[in-house]
Nucleic acid binder design. Sequence first.
DNA 1: ACCATTTACCTAGATTATCTAGGTCTACTT
DNA 2: AAGTAGACCTAGATAATCTAGGTAAATGGT
Lengths: 108, 108
Amino acid sequence: MEKTELLSGTLDLLVLQVLSGGPLHGFAIAEQIHVLSRDVLTVEEGSLYPALYRMEEKGWIEAEWGQSEKGRRAKFYRLTKEGRQQLANERQAWDRVALAIGEVLRNA
Amino acid sequence: MEKTELLSGTLDLLVLQVLSGGPLHGFAIAEQIHVLSRDVLTVEEGSLYPALYRMEEKGWIEAEWGQSEKGRRAKFYRLTKEGRQQLANERQAWDRVALAIGEVLRNA
DNA sequence: ACCATTTACCTAGATTATCTAGGTCTACTT
DNA sequence: AAGTAGACCTAGATAATCTAGGTAAATGGT
């Protein structure tokens, strides 16, 4: 209940977004989100991997085994066409909701 | 999974915020959030009432029975001092996280 | 040659928030 | 008298995230 440094419901959006820059393995996805958010957002592995499976089942991403920059085996994920569409949808939904919350915070 | 028109984890913030303008009964809290967000955010009653209890137990709000504008019995909630502090904390947390997400969306 | 650390993935179970879908009661309207 | 709207309540389902473990391979230090 305390230090939830990830806003529930935004994980898919974040993953899709960092994958839009090109394929990445799971570990690197979490790193990217952490770094790009300037250490504000932390994705726990126990959240990440199940999320990747869900998204793979939905056809938004595809996986392929390969080798990481550090020479270890790693599963690389890349966006599918559906994933790209989903990203667009989620970005729009985020904008809409974040703006709406902003309005409430401004006007109450 | 589809039309979640409320971002998980933001309900407390929204409730505290609309109460910062003065006491309101539960039904009116939901209305206010809906109206102020220009119909984007909808709080279901099954989410609202349990949330109000949680917040009351935490000492952020206090309840008192009274009469609504329409002449029906209604439970009015008002912010406590702790609630005001909590609101400040949650606003800050929201700003921080929303900004961080924005950075990821901009830079990936 | 050995051991610790880092990298990378995986999973079961707990927790928690929200929603669904019911319900009650009362005032007002027709 | 009946129907609708206002206002509250709750049990159970759903689903996302976290906790806290675990495996295995490559690197680095001694």
